[in-house]
Design a protein around this nucleic acid. Structure first.
Length: 592
RNA sequence: GGUGGCAUAGCUCAGCUGGAUAGAGCACCUGCCUUCUAAGCAGGCGGUCCUAGGUUCGAAUCCUAGUGCCAUCACCA
């Protein structure tokens, strides 16, 4: 039972009894640390209904509550704030209700209410980089949070496995690859293919320079460079189903998929269903044809089909080329509809895509709404800011990227170096240590990225490594490990689980208050599609626990009942840390 | 130029539906390891909440205008 729900009716009752006025709502906030109390009622906001001096109003309501509500033990009024002290027994009772609830914080899944979360959606011509990491972590975490909030979730991606950029890698490999394979080079497949994407760009740039040298206009040179023309020819052949090109395409894509598989596994993300652009890029044309008949779209003189969104404050947008082929928008319309066909319980979708595509998704959602799909009201573009380097934007074709695999490996190495220095892992085998360094290094990386509001741009400086102290993943993992250490020791003590305490230490009370916020934090994070809220909540919980831990002895306490209670409290905090971190896709270690 | 996002301590970020003296971490300075793991705790230093107006008993938060950075406005994806 939430104390605020209880108090709300009582405060309204008080106002009705004492002032004969009825309040529409009551405004609560946690009492600030510097004042005495647990919950604060804001009196100012009542002044529209109740006339008078805020302090006097507060006094009267406070007196009424102390008199009428068992949970309120005392109060004080400062300016327009009524601070209420809530009884220890209230917190103890609510703790008893949650301490054995293994799914504390989560809501039971409502199978009727399914949502599809799309994330990752890479191109198959280059390895994943730091930008993808942010995308993957956000998408995965939001999917987990939605599940915890009671949604049924399908994780998916659309793999951009076709197009001119893919042909660039293919062509460069064909021309300069000398038959290299992942096996022959020992390279991960995605890395190998990515190298040829870079090769293509180098050759292309050289050809442009050569053309400009002999007096060609630069813009023209960019179009007429022979290798680009060749790539375009290759794309035409691919679309025509040319056997040789398709075989090469399949071979190289398989290399990439194998590479991605490794990266995803290391990153700890997964998918329930996959969509390939090569399957979906022709979808949507029928929908456009139907929409054309209904007058939602219109045809221009050259035969291209458009939608006019100027009444909605947007522009005209093309949905079909004059030659009748599909554009990106056509495909996305088709894919969305296809997904609902494949999974009829889907009532909404989340697209995890960078904020450079804000406009595209605004248009897409509007079109789907105009086409009359009921689920079009529940589409959300999980838009996130770019991850930039101090040197500027990451560009795969120029090789200025922070590679996902390298970064994860570096983080684990750093974690290992720190752990070696601290030297607390005696008894661990080399393998166990390695696994632990992975957990810590990844924890640092994931937390670092997820704690930031998705909308904000991240400036990532590879020179200054990600922190392991303060508001970081390892800090939280460390607290978890410490709790596990206590629990291991406590299990040898043979504690009586049924004794009870009646009074709380202030630190215990603070901790219980923070624990109770977990369920609403999950709901808030789900409503806002924001893992950052989970991260920040967990950080606050952990700080509260550490303060408790350093100021109050758990196992050194004399009173057996207190030991038992504190152990239970520590265990619950540990459970919530693990649960919250699971929502972020971060593992917690037993020791560190 | 139109549209969207962002702007808070030296740096990285919190700040929920407007509420008390704007909070953390890093960095810098003090203390605390023979007692449950010091990747920790306790404390100090540090602010024109981009600017100017407005609404309100009350504005970092809402509104208007402006400034700066980023993105976008393709028969590319």
């Amino acid at each position: 039972m939430n104390i605020q729900d209880l108090l709300e009716t009582k405060v309204k009752e008080a106002v009705l009894q004492v002032f004969e006025a009825s309040l529409p709502t009551v405004e609560f906030q946690p009492t600030r640390k510097e004042f005495e109390g647990d919950v604060t009622v804001v009196i100012f906001s009542m002044l529209r209904v109740v006339k008078g001096n805020p302090v006097q109003i507060g006094e009267k309501i406070g007196a009424y509550l102390v008199d009428q509500v068992a949970e309120v033990t005392s109060f004080n009024v400062i300016k327009g704030f009524l601070n209420l002290v809530i009884s220890d027994s209230f917190y103890l009772t609510s703790f008893a209700a949650i301490k054995n609830d293994d799914s504390f914080g989560s809501v039971k899944t409502n199978a009727e209410d399914a949502v599809m979360v799309e994330y990752s959606s890479p191109n198959t011509n280059k390895p994943l980089h730091l930008g993808h990491i942010r995308n993957n972590l956000l998408g995965y975490s939001v999917a987990e949070i939605l599940k915890a909030a009671g949604k049924k979730v399908y994780k998916t991606q659309i793999i951009n496995d076709r197009g001119i950029h893919i042909c660039k890698s293919m062509l460069a490999w064909q021309k300069f690859g000398k038959g290299e394979t992942p096996e022959s080079t020992g390279l991960k497949g995605d890395k190998l293919v990515g190298n040829y994407y870079v090769t293509f760009d180098k050759v292309y740039k050289k050809e442009i320079a050569d053309l400009v040298e002999i007096g060609t206009d630069k813009a023209l040179a960019e179009k007429e460079a022979p290798i680009l023309q060749e790539a375009q020819q290759m794309l035409l052949k691919w679309e025509a189903g040319d056997e040789e090109v398709v075989a090469l395409w399949k071979k190289m894509n398989q290399w990439v998929y194998k590479g991605f598989e490794v990266t995803y596994k290391n990153l700890g993300v997964d998918f329930d269903t996959l969509y390939y652009e090569s399957d979906t890029y022709l979808l949507g044309k029928d929908v456009v044809a139907a929409g054309l008949e209904k007058g939602i779209f219109f045809r221009k003189d050259d035969g291209s089909v458009w939608i006019d969104l100027t009444d909605d404050g947007l522009d005209e947008k093309i949905v079909l080329r004059s030659d009748g082929t599909a554009v990106y928008m056509t495909q996305d319309i088709g894919t969305a509809i296809q997904r609902v066909k494949d999974y009829p319980d889907v009532g909404g979708m989340v697209y995890t895509v960078g904020n450079e595509q804000d406009y595209h998704f605004k248009v897409l959602f509007l079109i789907l709404k105009k086409l009359g799909f009921s689920w079009a009201d529940n589409l959300f573009h999980l838009s996130y800011g770019m991850v930039d380097l101090p040197s500027g934007k990451m560009k795969s074709r120029e090789g200025t990227v922070v590679d996902a695999d390298d970064l994860m490996a570096d983080m684990a190495t750093t974690a290992g170096n720190i752990a070696e220095e601290l030297g607390k892992l005696e008894g661990y085998s080399a393998d166990e240590k390695q696994a632990l360094y992975q957990i810590i290094g990844l924890g640092a990386l994931k937390y670092y990225i997820l704690k930031v509001d998705p909308k904000k741009r991240i400036l990532f400086n590879p020179e200054e490594s990600v922190d392991f102290q303060g508001n970081t993943g390892p800090f939280i993992q460390y607290t978890y490990a410490r709790i596990q250490s206590i629990l291991r020791k406590a299990s040898e003590l043979n504690l009586d689980q049924h004794v009870s305490v009646s009074e709380l230490h202030p630190k215990e009370k603070e901790l219980l208050k923070q624990l109770q916020l977990y369920p609403e934090t999950i709901q808030l994070a789900a409503a806002n599609f924001s893992p950052a809220l989970i991260a920040n909540y967990t950080y606050d919980l952990v700080r509260e626990f550490n303060s408790f831990y350093q100021n109050v002895s758990i196992l050194g306490e004399e009173d057996q009942a207190k030991i038992a209670f504190r152990v239970q409290l520590a265990q619950k905090v540990g459970d919530v840390i693990a649960s919250a971190f699971k929502l972020l896709g971060i593992e917690v270690p037993e020791r560190m």
